[in-house]
Design a protein around this nucleic acid. Structure first.
Lengths: 346, 346
DNA sequence: CTGAAAGCGCTAACAG
DNA sequence: CTGTTAGCGCTTTCAG
C-alpha cells in the first residue's frame, strides 16, 4: 500500500480485523444489533473501530443490493423560475433532513422531454418522484404510479386520476382576486394566460370567469403560447391592452406573464394603476419592489413543500398510504396596483 | 410470472435466450463490438432483441461495478438565489446533453454544512463537483482535489491553490462600475457588502477602493453579516445611508444586498437617482423592471456555465488536464439609476 | 470471434 | 449470540 493510496476498507476488512463475521458488522452498522441480539461488547467494539478508521459504507454497493438510492427526483418546469427555485430550496431542506438527496431536472413544459426524464429517473432508481407534470405525460405518470412508484404531483394535477398531489386552490384564489378588482370598482378586467390545458391554468381561468359572470361583467381573455420568447409575449400583451381600450385592470395568470405584463404596460406607455390595475400570480420579490407595488396571489410555498415531502416520505415508508390530495388556499396580498377605482384619474 | 409483474430482464437472461454469453452481450451493449471484433450478425441479433424486449441495463449495478455514477454534484450558496438558479438551469442543460445528471445542494454559506455536503457527494460517488465554496472549506476542497476528484469552483476561488475555477473579474467589474459613477460626477460613493473573506467579496471591495483612490475620493464602506435576516439588513442599510449624509451614490456588492438596498432606500424615504445613485451586482429582472431601472453589473452566466461544464467534462475525460483558471469580464449595464449628476436635483 | 468466470461491497436468509 | 454464504447485475480479464 503506497503512501498516497488510502486504502478504502470494506465491511469484510473490518470483520477480518476484528475477527468476527461480516454479517455481524453489517447488522450492527445498520442498527439491527438489538434486533439480532448481538452482544453489547461486540457492538461497541465494532462501532469504535469503525469510528477510528473512518469507515464509510459504499453507498453504491448498498443501493445496488437494496434497490434503494435515497434519491428523490424533482421534475419542475424550470429551475430558473423563482417560484420553483424557492420550492426546490425548501424541498431540499426537508429532504436532506430525512436523508434524501435531490436530483432535479427541468421540462420546459415539453412532454417528450418530460417523458424521457421520467424514464431517466426510473433508470436511476430514484426512490420517489416529485413531478410538476406537463399536459402530455398523464399516461406516463399513471403508469409509473401503477407500477408501484411513489409519485406526487405539484402545482397541477390530473383530475380523476389516483395520483396524489399538492396544488393551490387555483379556482378560488383567482376568483377572489377577480372579486377584489370588481369590489374596487373595475368593470373591464382582462386575463392574460398561456394557452394550456393544464389543470392550474384551467382553474385560474374558470375562477376568473366565474367571478365576472357572478357580476355580469364581460370577459377579456388573452392566451399566449408557452414557447414564445419574452419579447414576443410582451408584444402580444402590448397589443392586447392597447386594442381592448376599455380594459381597466388585468390579471396575469403566471409569474412570468406578470413580469412580461409589467414590461408591456411600460412599453405601451400606460401607468399602473392610473390606466390599468394589475394583479399577478405568485408573490415575487419583484412585485413587492415594483413601483407601484403589485397586488399578488401568494402561494403558501413553505406549507406546500412540507406537505409534499411529508406525503412522499409517508408513501416511501408504507406503500399502502393513498389519497393524499391536498389543495391549499392562496393568499391575496393587496397592494397599490389595485386601488379603489374612485381614486383613479383616467 | 404474473400478469402484473413485468419481469425485468438482466444481461444474463438475454445471453441465455440468445444462446450466447453475457460478456458478448455486455460488449455489444457498451459499443465495444468492433473493438472486440464481434460478428455483425451477433451484434445485430443482440441489438434487435434488446430493442424488442425493451431491456434497460441496471444503472445501479453498472455504477457499483464501475464506480462511475454519471452524476455531478452541484453545491451552491442557495438554489433560491436567482443567480444560482439560472446557473443551475444552464448547468443542467449542458450536463444532460452530455449524459450527466445533477445532484444539488445549498450551503447557505455555512462551512460545516458545506463540509458535510462534500462528504455526502463523495459518499455518493459523484463523478464531478461544481462547488461555490464557503470560506471555511478551503482545506476540504484541496484534499478532495488532491485525492483525484474532478472539482471546479465557481463564483469565488482560493487564490494560489491548484483548483480550477470559473469566476468573474470582480476587481475590474467593480472598478469599472465605480469609475462609471465617478465619471457621472458622484463624489461620495458608498459600498455595501457582506463581511466576508471570500475572494469575490474581497475583489469587489478592492476594485471599489482602487477606483476611489485613483480619484482621491473617500471610502464609505458598510459590511453586514451574511446571516442576518432581510429586515435587519434593510435596517442597517437605512441607518448607513441616513447617517452618511454626504452619500450621493451606493454600490451593492451582491444581488440580495441590492434588493435589500432598494427596500432600504424606499424605507428611508429617499429617491433614486435624485438623492442617491445606485449600482447593483447581477442583472436581475427585478433591477430592469424597477423604477427607475437600476444600473447593474451583469455576469456572463451563459458562458460561465458552458466553461464550467466543458472544463469539468474535460477533467472527467482525462485526469491530466490542469490549470483551467478562467476569469471572465463583467458587463456594466448603464441605466437610469446612475445618470450624470449635473441633471440631478438635490 | 466468443465464452467462462471472477469479483465489486453489501444484505439477509439460513445455519449453527 | 454469531458465522457462512448466496446472490444483486454488471464489467472485464483471461482463456480458448
Amino acid at each position: 500500500m503506497s503512501i498516497l493510496k488510502k486504502k478504502v476498507l470494506s465491511i469484510i476488512d473490518i470483520a477480518r480485523q476484528l475477527g468476527i463475521s461480516q454479517s455481524t458488522v453489517s447488522f450492527i452498522l445498520n442498527g439491527k444489533a438489538k434486533e439480532r441480539r448481538i452482544s453489547d461488547a461486540t457492538t461497541q467494539r465494532v462501532l469504535k473501530f469503525v469510528e477510528e478508521v473512518g469507515y464509510k459504507p459504499n453507498l453504491l454497493a448498498r443501493s445496488f443490493r437494496t434497490g434503494k438510492t435515497n434519491i428523490i427526483g424533482l421534475m419542475v418546469e424550470s429551475i430558473a423560475n423563482p417560484f420553483f427555485a424557492n420550492l426546490a430550496r425548501l424541498i431540499e431542506e426537508n429532504a436532506y433532513k430525512n436523508g434524501y438527496k435531490i436530483l432535479y431536472c427541468s421540462t420546459e413544459n415539453d412532454s417528450a422531454k418530460a417523458r424521457e426524464l421520467i424514464h431517466m429517473f426510473k433508470d436511476r432508481h430514484v426512490d420517489g418522484y416529485i413531478i410538476i407534470p406537463t399536459e402530455g405525460i398523464r399516461d406516463d405518470v399513471n403508469k409509473l404510479a401503477a407500477g408501484g412508484a411513489s409519485v406526487i404531483l405539484f402545482d397541477r394535477c390530473f383530475e380523476g386520476d389516483a395520483i396524489d398531489y399538492v396544488v393551490l386552490d387555483n379556482f378560488n384564489s383567482t376568483y377572489n382576486a377577480t372579486k377584489h378588482l370588481i369590489d374596487q370598482g373595475y368593470k373591464h378586467i382582462g386575463f392574460v394566460s398561456i394557452s394550456s390545458l393544464q389543470s392550474q391554468m384551467q382553474q385560474r381561468l374558470a375562477g376568473y370567469e366565474k367571478a365576472l359572470d357572478d357580476h355580469s361583467l364581460q370577459h377579456y381573455v388573452k392566451e399566449v403560447g408557452f414557447y414564445l420568447d419574452t419579447n414576443t409575449v410582451v408584444d402580444y400583451i402590448v397589443d392586447f391592452i392597447l386594442r381592448k381600450k376599455k380594459l381597466d385592470a388585468v390579471i396575469f395568470a403566471t409569474n412570468y406573464l406578470g413580469v412580461s405584463g409589467l414590461k408591456a404596460i411600460k412599453k405601451a406607455g400606460l401607468s399602473i394603476p392610473d390606466n390599468l390595475a394589475v394583479v399577478c400570480y405568485d408573490d415575487l420579490e419583484l412585485f413587492e419592489l415594483h413601483t407601484p407595488r403589485i397586488t399578488s396571489i401568494a402561494q403558501p410555498i413553505q406549507e406546500m413543500s412540507e406537505q409534499l415531502i411529508n406525503i412522499l416520505l409517508d408513501k416511501l415508508a408504507s406503500k399502502n398510504s393513498i389519497n393524499h390530495k391536498v389543495t391549499l388556499p392562496g393568499k391575496l396580498i393587496i397592494r397599490e396596483s389595485s386601488p379603489k377605482i374612485a381614486r383613479r384619474k383616467k
